[in-house]
Amino acid sequence: MMFTAAGAAVLIAILLFLMRALLGPTAFDRILAVNAIGTKTVVFVALLGFMAGRPDFLDIALLYALINFIATLAVLKFVEYRHLD
């Protein structure tokens, strides 16, 4: 029961960040909000793993944290240099 309440709170936080991602005037607000949503998704997946009693969800959460970081840096490099190579 505790994890469902925590999961609901994390979902509310994700909704707040999503609103900033939609409203954000500059592109950097959006990148920031998407990065924060990625971190929240990691926490939510970990909570889901505990709710469903499946410890292998934590690998998904770890991988998602890695990819989220790399994706943020890639988008930033593209925004700054207009090309990735």
């Binding site: 309440a5 709170a9 707040l16 607000d29 909000a33």
Partner: peptide, 25 residues
Amino acid sequence: GCFFAITGGVGILRMPDFYTRLHAA
């Protein structure tokens, strides 16, 4: 932890500028 998560969400919405939202996010 959930309190701080929602505080971060509220903070990123209420802050006036990108640089101040950095703190929240």
